[in-house]
Computed example of a mutant assay.
Amino acid sequence: MYDNEFGSLNVTIRVLENDLLNQAIYDRMLAADSFRDAVSILRETTYRDKVEKVLENHNYDDMITEELVETYQKLFSITPDPKLVELASLRYTYQNLKVMIKEWIAETNFSEMYFDIGRFDLTELRQAVQLGKSEVLSQAYLNTINDAKTDYSEFKNVHQVEVLIDRHYFQHFKQLATEIGHPSIIEMIDMQIDFKNISTLIRAKYQNRTKNFLRSVLSDAGSFEIEKLIQLGVGDARNLIQSLAETKYKDVLNESLITAGIGISSIKFDYYTDNALMRKMQDAKLQAFGPLPMLAYIYAKETEVRNLRLVLSAKENQINIEETKGRMRMNYVS
């Protein structure tokens, strides 16, 4: 089904890919004499209509957010299966749910913190949070909302509610991938959840976190057995490294080692996992049929705005060029 439905869409995706920022653009921006000169280079790109406003107010975050909103709106309008774009945009919806739950708790309006990205209208989400029900949202959203409200009513702990919502997010993330049913998509989602679990485990290890803490923050939606991860998290650091080095993610782990191989940098691990996912997406874009090229394009766009924000921040704050390049994620296009 997907091969037939996505054939023509993937032609459109190829056209959209031509507008992605290439490395030459980033290099020219970094080499520019000033923030203003760097921004002006974007007149040659898909950001051209937003340049003048950024030159006036230096608010490039609004430009980047607007670009993302437009990207997701376009993809929702052309996809044969909205669940695919819902999958890619789910983290924004769950971020909005966190904000809306805080509104419900504080009886205050925090709408300036919303991201207008996701399958469902913000008004529908707010109504569901207030009423605990919806005729539009799936049960996964309603379970998240009602479990969060129940948890806060019982324990009055906002941070605990945020952790609960994060766990629901990863469960929903995996559920959507399973409903879509494409083996490569399920593999990609498992990979993202596993990377998040390992990153959390590394940070928790160096903070001497307890088993109960790990049990509350790790997700069982990936490919690892959570209890095994928890045992690694409270055990010897060398055993943690050795055990992770025996998994399918050993290459990423080895790139992240520090202190003569007896420690792991969570910052380096996050960097190399992002690049490992990008390599996966670069392979996916080569497929002529099926849904993978669209998901690869979305990941590419998300990486683009991340790198663009980093470059513009560096120019605004006069950060060293080589330091900035070292923090940029692998680009989708050369």
Rank of each mutant, 00 (worst) to 15 (best):
I180K: 06
H182A: 13
I186P: 06
E187D: 15
M188C: 13
M188S: 15
D190W: 14
D194S: 11
D194L: 09
S199I: 09
R203N: 09
Q207M: 12
Q207G: 05
R209C: 07
T210N: 04
L214N: 08
S216C: 04
L218K: 03
G222A: 03
S223E: 00
S223D: 00
E225P: 00
I230S: 02
I230W: 04
L232F: 10
L232K: 10
D236Q: 09
N239E: 12
L240D: 04
I241T: 01
L244V: 07
A245K: 13
A245L: 12
D251Y: 03
D251L: 01
L253N: 04
L253S: 02
E255W: 02
S256W: 04
I258F: 03
I262D: 12
F269Y: 14
Y271K: 15
Y271M: 14
Y272H: 10
A276L: 00
Q282N: 04
D283V: 10
D283H: 12
A284E: 10
Q287P: 02
A288D: 00
L292D: 10
M294E: 15
I298Y: 09
Y299S: 04
A300D: 08
K301N: 09
E302F: 09
E302T: 08
E302N: 11
E304L: 05
R306L: 02
N307T: 06
R309D: 07
K315T: 08
E316P: 01
N317D: 15
N317Q: 15
N320C: 10
K325D: 01
